[in-house]
Design a protein around this nucleic acid. Structure first.
Lengths: 338, 338
DNA sequence: TGAACTTATGTTAACGTTCACATAACGAAA
DNA sequence: TTTCGTTATGTGAACGTTAACATAAGTTCA
C-alpha cells in the first residue's frame, strides 16, 4: 500500500545524477550515451521501479504504439473473435498494445461513432474485422491516412485487405461433388451480404455453370445448425430432387444431416454433403464431414505486417488471400441412380 | 488530405471568444457555465471538428477511462473470447474504452510482464479472464488497489470474482444419470488444474459419493472432440463395465459417441451420455445431447458493474456465481440390465 | 448601502515525456 | 598550439489537457 507517487524521469535523473534528457535517451536506446552513464541510469531505474508514463509520451509524440481493432459484429462472431485474438497476439509480439471496440450494426450507434472511439486514442494503426462491406468506405476516409487493414470484407478499391479464397474453395468443394457424378446439387448459403456467404455462393455457381448445371437450388441460412436443420426440412418437404448439398459451413451441414436422418435418409447413401470450415469436431460427425479447411492462423501476422509496411511508408498495396484446402472424409459418395 | 493540425482547446476558445478553461468546463459538463457561452462553445467545437486529446487528459488526471482485459489463454480459448467480447461491449456501454492483452502460459514471458503492459496504460480497472488460478495472487498485488475483477478462476481470498456454478451443475448432471438407475458412471474431465474441469469433477464425485457409488472412473481429456474420441476408444478397449458417461463438455461427448459408434455401441441404447455447455449444435448431434446450458451473457455486465462499484469505493466484495441449467434431450435412457 | 454569498469566467501551473538546440569534453588533424 | 569534428550531456520549450486559485459580476439580505 505504498502511497508514494510513481517515479518519473526527473526522479531517476536526480538519483543517477544526470539530466532527465539523458534518462530519456537511455530509455529509448538512443545513441550518444556513454556506457558508464547508461549503467548508472539503468540501475537508478531499477531501484526506483521506474515505468514510463505512456500518456505523457503519446502526448508529445502524438501517437501511441497501439493498434486498434474494430470488430463489426455479425452472425459469425466466433470467427471474428478468433481473428481478433490472432491480431492481438501478433501485435504484442511486435511491441504494440491493443485497443478494441465492437460495433453492432443493430445497435443505435453509427459506425462513424465507433471508429471515433478508436481514432481519439491516437493509435498507430487500425485493423477492421468485418463480414460485410457496407459502410467500410467511410472508415478509410475517417482514418485519413492512418494505417488501416481490413480483414475479411473491405472496400473494393482499398489495397490493404486480407481474406480467404472463399470463392475458389467453394468452387473446388462443388467440383468435388460434380466429379462424383452429382447433378442435382443444392447449396445452403450463409446470410446474404456477408462476404463469406457471397463468395462461397459465387464459387458454387461458377462450378455448376462450368459443368452446364443450373445453380438454382440455393437456400439461405444464418450459419447456425438450427438453420441448417430447418433448411433441410424445407428442402425435403419441397419434394425437389437432389443428391448432394454443398453447405456454406459445417454447422449447417450438421443440422442438415439431422433433418435427413429424421426422414430416414442417410449420408452419404442417399445424399452427399460437403461442408466448409473444418471445425475441430467435424471429423466426428456421423458421417465424418468432407469439408474445406480454413486457416485463420496467418490473419494476425499478415495484418500486423501490412500495418507496419504502411507505417514505414512502403506503400505497395497488396491484396492478400489465404488459401483454404479441401479435406476429404466420408460424407460424399458417387451418385447412385435415382 | 487536410494537413491542418487537429484543433485543441485553445483554438476552440479563441473562436468562441472565451478562455480554454471555459471550454474545458463545457467539455466536461461542469456547472458554472452560462447557457449562452455553453452554446457558443459548442458551436465552435462543431465548427472546428474538435475532438479532445485523450492522452493529454490522461496525463493530467493520471487515469484513462479505459478498462483493461487480461486474457490468460488456455485450451478453451473460444470461451474466454466470448467473455472478452461481452466485457468489451458492456464497457463501451458504460463509456469505457477497452484495451486487451493476451498471456500465453506456454510463452517465455512472465505473467507479471503481461500485467505491466496493462498497468502502464493507467487504466480505470482490469478484468482478468483465466481458467487456472495459478499465479493470480500476484496480479492482485501488482494492481495495488486498482479495481480488479476475475472471471472464471481467481485467487481464493479475493472478493471480486465471477464464475459459473460448475460444481452444482455437474452434480445435477451426474444425479440425472444416477436417478435413471446408472451405477457404473464414467467421467471425462477437462485438463487438470482448469477451474472448470476441477469444479465439474468435484460435482461428479460428490453426486457419486452421495449415491454410495465409487467415482473411480475418471478420464482426463483436453476438451477437444479428438480427445473425447481417444478417451472413448481407451475406455472401450479397457474392458471396463460402464453404462453411462458424464462428459465435461459437449465436444468430448461428440468424440465419445463417434468412438462408441465405431464399435457398434449406440447411444442411449448401450450407453447414456450427459454433456456440458449446450453448444448451439448439440441438439443436432445423433442423438441430441442431454447437457448443461452455460449462460455467459451476464459475465460482461456483472464484471463492469463490479469494477464500477470498486471505483466508487463501495467495497462490498461479492462473489457472484452464474447458474447453469440442465437440458434434457435424447442421449440418456434408463439403465438396462447388463 | 454594502457585506456576504453564489455564479461565471480567466490565469497560471502542473502532468511526464520528447525534441530542438546549446554546450562541454575529447581526440585527431593541421 | 589551434581548429574542427565527433561524442556526450544539459537546458528549456513544447504537447493539450485539468485543476487550484484569483477575480469579476450578480443577487440576497440586513
Amino acid at each position: 500500500m505504498s502511497k508514494k507517487k510513481r517515479a518519473g524521469l526527473h526522479d531517476v535523473a536526480k538519483l543517477a545524477g544526470v539530466s532527465h534528457t539523458t534518462v530519456s535517451r537511455v530509455l529509448n536506446g538512443q545513441q550518444y550515451v556513454s556506457e558508464k552513464t547508461k549503467l548508472k541510469v539503468e540501475k537508478a531505474m531499477l531501484q526506483l521501479d521506474y515505468r514510463p508514463n505512456l500518456h505523457a509520451r503519446s502526448l508529445v509524440t502524438s501517437s501511441s504504439a497501439t493498434v486498434g481493432i474494430l470488430i463489426i459484429s455479425d452472425a459469425n462472431l466466433v470467427g471474428s473473435l478468433k481473428i481478433l485474438s490472432e491480431v492481438s497476439v501478433e501485435a504484442t509480439k511486435a511491441n504494440f498494445l491493443t485497443s478494441i471496440t465492437t460495433f453492432d450494426r443493430k445497435a443505435d450507434e453509427s459506425l462513424r461513432h465507433a471508429m471515433f472511439r478508436l481514432l481519439d486514442q491516437g493509435l498507430a494503426g487500425i485493423v477492421v474485422i468485418s463480414a460485410r462491406k457496407e459502410g467500410l468506405d467511410e472508415l478509410v476516409q475517417l482514418a485519413n491516412g492512418l494505417p488501416l487493414v481490413f480483414c475479411k470484407a473491405g472496400p473494393d478499391n482499398f489495397g490493404y485487405r486480407i481474406k480467404l479464397e472463399n470463392e475458389i474453395a467453394a468452387y473446388r468443394a462443388t467440383h468435388q461433388l460434380i466429379s462424383l457424378g452429382h447433378k442435382k446439387i443444392v447449396h445452403f448459403s450463409g446470410p446474404h451480404g456477408l462476404i463469406d456467404s457471397d463468395d462461397r455462393r459465387e464459387g458454387f455457381e461458377r462450378a455448376m455453370r462450368e459443368a452446364h448445371l443450373e445453380p438454382d437450388m440455393i437456400y439461405e441460412g444464418d450459419w447456425s445448425a438450427d438453420s441448417g436443420y430447418k433448411l433441410g426440412k424445407d428442402l425435403i418437404s419441397s419434394g425437389k430432387k437432389f443428391t448432394a448439398v454443398f453447405s456454406g459451413n459445417d454447422k449447417m451441414a450438421l443440422g442438415l444431416i439431422h433433418a435427413l436422418n429424421q426422414k430416414s435418409l442417410e449420408v452419404p447413401r442417399d445424399v452427399s454433403i460437403v461442408g466448409f470450415d473444418d471445425l475441430e469436431e467435424s471429423k466426428h460427425y456421423r458421417p465424418a464431414l468432407t469439408t474445406v479447411r480454413q486457416d485463420f492462423s496467418e490473419f494476425g501476422s499478415r495484418a500486423i505486417a501490412m500495418l507496419q509496411s504502411q507505417m514505414a511508408g512502403e506503400g505497395k498495396p497488396n491484396f492478400e488471400q489465404l488459401n483454404p484446402e479441401l479435406v476429404i472424409r466420408n460424407s460424399c459418395d458417387v451418385v447412385l441412380q435415382k
